[in-house]
Amino acid sequence: MPKPHGFSYEQFGDGSVVITHQGRAAGTLRGARAEKFLAEAGAGDSQLVMARWTGAYKHGNERAARNHPRNR
């Protein structure tokens, strides 16, 4: 599976975090969720972490979905 790319995040003074994908806002985290995200992003592959937190990651069924009649 290809690794996600194009994600970045910015932390603000009020503790909120905005995750962007290719320059467009993909999610905003505040409070405890923002702290948990920052701890996780600093520990591993940040692109994969941001993709997972925004829900913009592959689920593994894309090849099967391509062959479904509604997608032809």
Rank of each mutant, 00 (worst) to 15 (best):
P2N: 01
K3S: 13
K3Y: 05
P4H: 06
P4V: 04
P4L: 06
H5S: 10
G6W: 10
G6C: 12
G6I: 09
F7L: 08
S8N: 14
S8W: 06
E10N: 11
E10A: 14
E10F: 04
Q11C: 10
F12S: 11
F12T: 07
G13D: 15
D14L: 00
D14V: 01
G15Y: 07
G15N: 06
G15W: 08
G15C: 12
G15K: 07
G15T: 05
S16D: 09
S16V: 03
S16P: 00
S16A: 12
V17A: 04
V17S: 04
V18C: 06
V18W: 05
I19C: 08
I19N: 03
T20S: 15
Q22E: 15
G23I: 05
R24A: 15
A26Y: 07
A26F: 10
L29Q: 04
L29I: 04
L29E: 05
R30C: 08
R30P: 00
R30K: 15
A32D: 15
A32G: 11
R33K: 15
R33H: 13
A34H: 08
F37G: 02
A39K: 14
E40Q: 13
A43T: 08
D45M: 09
S46D: 11
S46A: 15
Q47D: 11
V49L: 02
V49P: 00
M50E: 05
A51Y: 00
A51K: 00
R52P: 00
R52M: 06
W53S: 02
T54W: 06
T54E: 07
G55L: 05
A56H: 09
Y57N: 11
K58G: 10
K58N: 06
N61R: 12
N61P: 00
E62A: 10
E62T: 03
E62Q: 10
A64H: 09
A65S: 13
R66E: 15
R66T: 13
N67P: 00
N67F: 10
H68A: 15
P69A: 09
R70I: 10
R70N: 06
R70P: 02
N71M: 13
